[in-house]
């Protein structure tokens, strides 16, 4: 759509600007402020320069949490994306099955995050949870509060349970927008199922898939509530991801300087990914108009 140049449009954006500036810019300035100062309490602050940043980047605690978070993000992507595509391909395209599938699959997305944690905390317990009880009874040692492997497995399965539907829904939205003519043409050519997937469905889905990958990456990169409720970051530090570590530092120990420095580094990483995301999203928007009718 052709847009007219009109700088008065700024007035319409103003309320949003003021509101988000209040809830984003002021807090961020506080963080920047703390990140370069040291305090011994009593509201006395001293200039600390880049000390916290140097400490942070050299500290094992931060790099460990970062590595754990990256491993977590990539493992859930490796499971959720293929699984999501596969389920979306098998979903019915018409009839009563469609709304039923959509509603039931979307349900986990609407569960409050700490309830997701509670659900899996209960579900995995060996004494009263279905999963823990069954696993232990068929001879698999499973205790997510003691065993790091079990804790990781629980956190990953929980995230797969919670968010795979997002991938499914996005892929499904991409799939139903493929005109029937493409499939007819494929049938004429005698294309195999794999060929249809590889040359028609996958290319048509690639934009929604990009959105799905980026959204899932960003959200898993800042995951806090669910693993916090289930494992509390433990056993030991084995499931302490970046956000959990940060909250521990900022609200638990009130190490303002280090916590602020960590916040900024964390935010910078997010900013880079946001930029990638933005570029992808706006390109999607730019090539969208022809199919907007759906």
């Amino acid at each position: 759509m052709e847009k007219t140049v009109n700088n008065k449009a700024w007035f319409m954006v103003l309320p949003v600007l003021v509101l988000v500036a209040f809830s984003a810019v002021i807090p961020l300035m506080t963080v920047v402020n703390y990140s370069v100062q040291d305090t011994f309490g009593n509201n006395q602050f001293f200039w600390a320069g880049t000390e916290w940043f140097v400490d942070l980047l050299a500290s094992e605690r931060f790099t460990d949490a970062l590595v754990r978070n990256l491993i977590f993000s990539f493992s859930i992507l490796a499971i959720q994306i293929p699984l999501g595509i596969f389920i979306a391909l098998c979903m019915p395209r018409k009839g009563w099955g469609v709304p039923v599938c959509l509603v039931l699959m979307a349900l986990p997305l609407l569960v409050p995050w700490n309830v997701v944690g509670t659900i899996w905390q209960v579900f995995g317990r060996a004494d009263i949870g279905l999963l823990g009880y069954v696993l232990n009874n068929i001879g698999i040692e499973y205790n997510y509060t003691q065993d790091p492997v079990a804790a990781w497995a629980t956190v990953i399965i929980m995230d797969v349970w919670h968010w795979t539907s997002l991938v499914v829904l996005l892929c499904y939205a991409g799939l139903v927008s493929i005109p029937e003519a493409y499939y007819q043409a494929a049938r004429i050519d005698g294309a195999s199922k794999w060929a249809i997937f590889r040359f028609i469905q996958l290319p048509k889905m690639h934009r929604v898939l990009l959105i799905a990958v980026l959204l899932r990456f960003m959200d898993s990169f800042m995951i806090y509530t669910e693993p916090f409720v289930v494992t509390g970051g433990g056993p030991g530090n084995s499931t302490t991801f970046l956000s959990i570590d940060l909250v521990k530092m900022a609200l638990g120990q009130f190490d303002l300087g280090p916590a602020a420095a960590m916040s900024l580094v964390y935010f910078l990483i997010i900013l880079v990914f946001s930029w990638v995301f933005y570029t992808v999203m706006t390109n999607v928007g730019a090539e969208k108009p022809e199919t907007k009718g759906e």
Binding site: A9, V16, M222, S243, L251, T282
Partner: peptide, 25 residues
């Protein structure tokens, strides 16, 4: 309008911001 794309991007960064960063401030 002036800076529309930057503004739109800045809004997005707030959607992507980890709540943990903002809790204390």
């Amino acid at each position: 309008f002036l800076g529309d794309k930057h503004l739109f991007f800045w809004l997005l960064t707030n959607r992507m911001a980890p709540p943990a960063v903002f809790a204390l401030p």
